[in-house]
Design a protein around this nucleic acid. Structure first.
Lengths: 213, 213
DNA sequence: GCAAATTTTGACCGATTGGACAAACGTTAG
DNA sequence: CTAACGTTTGTCCAATCGGTCAAAATTTGC
């Protein structure tokens, strides 16, 4: 019978497992070929089943991608949500950079899937960007602005600060091949994330140090 | 007759014009839909001609994309080539940031085309990354390292410094829709590049200021 | 063990795609 | 005018794609 993504979504054990298997495979395929560059056959093969079987668990290609994007955004914004104004501002920013960098290292497929979507104009998640994401950014920007008012960090545009942290950290997932090609075989090992973390933490802590201590 | 991309490439005036027209249209289409997401029909329509006519000037879809990528990389690396160790280091870095940001503003399609290629593993330009790009980066990294030895800027990894400038500036072209969505209608106007320039110049100059003047 | 329900797949369909080709069109030199 | 050459396009083809369907295989409830 039909067990689509609709409201009730009663699922048996096997249905949940197979759906998970398909989503895992689809993440692989979508993140490396983009939406239009991926085929259901590729996803089916990666999941070890036939194409009609994939279509038995999901309405269609679009449905798989939508499901993937929805659960992606939650994990993706988690580090920003943790952003708190309780601790020391510089430490807070430093640990945010570290968390984002760890995500780029541990979840590069998710990062690339997201980048692919944004690059092509975010046709499927525009409402989420203008709603949930913007609201969260506005909230955190206010926290940052508070730190600046209190003279705890240097004055700068909070939104562009957030953008620059996103850009520098996600770069190591999205542009991974370029990073490795430029660093070469000797320096392109797994410790490139360590080097990046050190550099970025230094850049931002120095760059945001308050003018008069 | 055949006037492909091969060695001699004798071209009449009209051939050069039409090829240019097609490349301009293809840049539009490829940069917004990716390689596999684009069709020759779309390119033909954008160029105001028929599909077979496009195939008359180029061997095929791959040929158009390859030609586009080749001439792209030259303009793309131009700012880095200008990077010189003659002037003041901080000024040099600042003006590099400004140039890259101007490119993100004035040539967003080129940036997205490049990003699309890298995201998908750079299948078509890998040799260029490992060759030309790496060599250029190594050269400039040495220049930067010289500045650090002379105590003109703070010590930091030159390669990751280059990466962070790439990432932060290209972000405003590649993730444009997200930037605009987060900034909202009031702050997402054309002056967002001005704000970004101010923020980034400040971040990097403060972050790289030498420890003891 | 068996019947009902669920899961899996081979075969198929219509639409789209990259590309081929020859005929038609336009231009120019004599 | 016209023959030769460069340019343009309508038509067609084979391959691929997303998706359907009915039949087969498997699991589940009794």
């Amino acid at each position: 019978m039909s067990m689509q993504t609709e409201a009730p979504a009663r699922r048996t054990r096997i249905q949940r497992e197979k759906r998970e298997l398909i989503l895992e495979a689809a993440l692989d395929v979508f993140s490396t070929h983009g939406f239009r560059g991926s085929t259901i056959d590729q996803i089916a093969e990666a999941a070890g089943m036939s194409k009609p079987n994939v279509l038995y668990y999901f309405r269609g290609k679009e449905d798989i991608h939508k499901t993937l994007m929805q659960r992606l955004l939650d994990t993706w914004l988690a580090p920003l949500r943790e952003f708190d104004d309780s601790g020391d501002p510089i430490d807070e920013i430093r640990s945010y950079i570290r968390r984002k960098l760890e995500m780029a290292r541990d979840y590069p497929r998710e990062s690339r899937l997201f980048a692919n979507e944004i690059l092509q104009g975010a046709p499927r998640i525009m409402p989420l960007l203008e709603g949930e994401l913007k609201a969260l950014c506005d909230e955190k920007a206010e926290v940052i602005r508070g730190w600046m008012r209190d003279g705890k960090i240097a004055h700068a545009d909070p939104w562009h600060l957030i953008f620059s942290i996103w850009a520098t950290t996600q770069h190591y997932a999205d542009f991974d091949v370029q990073v490795r090609a430029v660093l070469g075989p000797t320096r392109g090992g797994e410790d490139r994330f360590e080097d990046a973390a050190l550099f970025l933490e230094n850049l931002f802590t120095q760059g945001l140090k308050p003018p008069r201590p």
